[in-house]
Design a protein around this nucleic acid. Sequence first.
DNA 1: CTGAAAGCGCTTACAG
DNA 2: CTGAAAGCGCTTACAG
Lengths: 328, 328
Amino acid sequence: MKDVAARAGVGLKTVSRVVNEEAGVTPDTVARVQAAIDALGFRRNDSARLLRTRRTASVGLVLEDLADPFYASLSRAVEDVARAHGALLFTGSSAEDPRREKELVLAFCARRVDGLVVVPASDDHRYLSSEIEAGVATVFVDRPAGALDADVVLTDNAGGTREGVAHLIAHGHRRIGFIGDQQGIHTAAERLRGYHEAMEDAGLPVRPEWWTMGPTAPERVRAALDVMLSGPERVTALFAGNNRVTVTAVRVLSGLSRPVALVGFDDFELADLLNPPVTVVAQDAPGIGRSAAQLLFRRLDGIVSDEPTRIELPARLIPRGSGEIPPS
Amino acid sequence: MKDVAARAGVGLKTVSRVVNEEAGVTPDTVARVQAAIDALGFRRNDSARLLRTRRTASVGLVLEDLADPFYASLSRAVEDVARAHGALLFTGSSAEDPRREKELVLAFCARRVDGLVVVPASDDHRYLSSEIEAGVATVFVDRPAGALDADVVLTDNAGGTREGVAHLIAHGHRRIGFIGDQQGIHTAAERLRGYHEAMEDAGLPVRPEWWTMGPTAPERVRAALDVMLSGPERVTALFAGNNRVTVTAVRVLSGLSRPVALVGFDDFELADLLNPPVTVVAQDAPGIGRSAAQLLFRRLDGIVSDEPTRIELPARLIPRGSGEIPPS
DNA sequence: CTGAAAGCGCTTACAG
DNA sequence: CTGAAAGCGCTTACAG
């Protein structure tokens, strides 16, 4: 910029004015500066500009895994909102590792991002409270923050599961199984709660061998299914607590002689092409991302009250066939 | 930092030394500075630091759509390599819009990212040549850059298709159809070339109604299939030029009375759960992302020659059932 | 309409 | 072992 000013024979401030298209510069001066800019191939360094402006026009997104379809479409939604607000997006995957989450979050804070959208991997976010006080707007997504009262946008996991299980009950099932992810995961616990509530609402008993929580590895799910599907009190329908469980369940159930109904939490591509097509309770990944990002920018613009906001988005039941199979 | 220095009664440089854990500071001084840092809640502003250091420790990734599974896993691989090199990742989706691609690329350049990984949407990247001269390392991915000789990492599209078509021929097919994406798309044209080569290698004639290029919208694909699958010279096998075509083809073929063999380019989740399981030619999305990012950092470290590098990764045939159906 | 000075928050290149 | 000065590339707050 100094070179441009020298070549055009003007002050730094005038170059700055031309570059930023500020009014009040003679057309003649503009032309001279522009010529110098073109000749020198000058282009403004936004990093320097932003240092002075005291905002970085960027937001950081920390999630489990950028490659996971759910988070991928959530990311895209966050990106779109950020773009609409003139901000660029940093992304990082925590891989469910609390240390990595913290590392990423602090790296973004050190760059002084204007705001953060975080899918919590850690269950203690007190390390963030000083940052938030320092002015980094933060919105948690998919799961609430641990030990910190902060903005959060999530799916109504319990409600969605309740609806899915009620759907099975409405189709005549009375013995329904539930296979969920590990207890410690907030969404998993909420879905389990929804299962119990739906059964209770219908006045149906729940036997202890009908539900189980744990890793979603295929072997574990198969073993759990074996238990549920044997004996005189075996289940006639299954609610799968997430995507991976659903897929394993489809594999196992397709090998059985008598049909077992299935509803899964989380939609997935080609669910309608399977045999039978899989009924699911779908989360709105773009909707969650969009809400979170919008809330973030409302915070940045100081539009929202200081009170932490909690937004819960409904899940949607999509009947496709597997959930409408009657009890055998 | 000024405040910390004042509180600790030391110079700025000493604070800098402590923050950066440089050697040669008395333990006593370190303790005093550290106490001031803690008391004031100071944390280094990396944006300011990087302005002075003249590198930003960040790379920009521009692709079609962050929500697309192929690009999502490519992104994750780029992220992992970037992390290993201590760099953060900016991501942006061009949505196949050349203007948006340019906008994103230039925004990243204006932030002075150290390097760029770009999935080209535009077919003219001359706008980038001045940036590249200015030192922004750039690697193109999935498709070569337009009108610019630059580093590129891509899949062997022609070779992969040749292998897939040869697989169908090996299973006895002589009349094989090909439905591809629009001609203008580099990968689409390459795959079409592979189809023609495989047929020619086997000495098989290709009738004009057996292959077609165009939008991958379901209606277009259905119409194209109708043509190929009717008349005395109808095809007994189909090669689908990409994911979306494959999915539509599965739907159409599953409704037919006589079986038609199918091989698709690009793997997709649950392909093995469909009926019949779908044989595909798989690209290595993480491998492509990893190679591109590694090449980028080798450039940044000045390890590679100045000559643009072209890396072509093999595609892999995964037989699952649909591609092994004999001619009816 | 234009520009010189100070400053954003750090590091570099010195000197002591 | 420590620090004052200059500078990274811009903008802000003035003054003229």
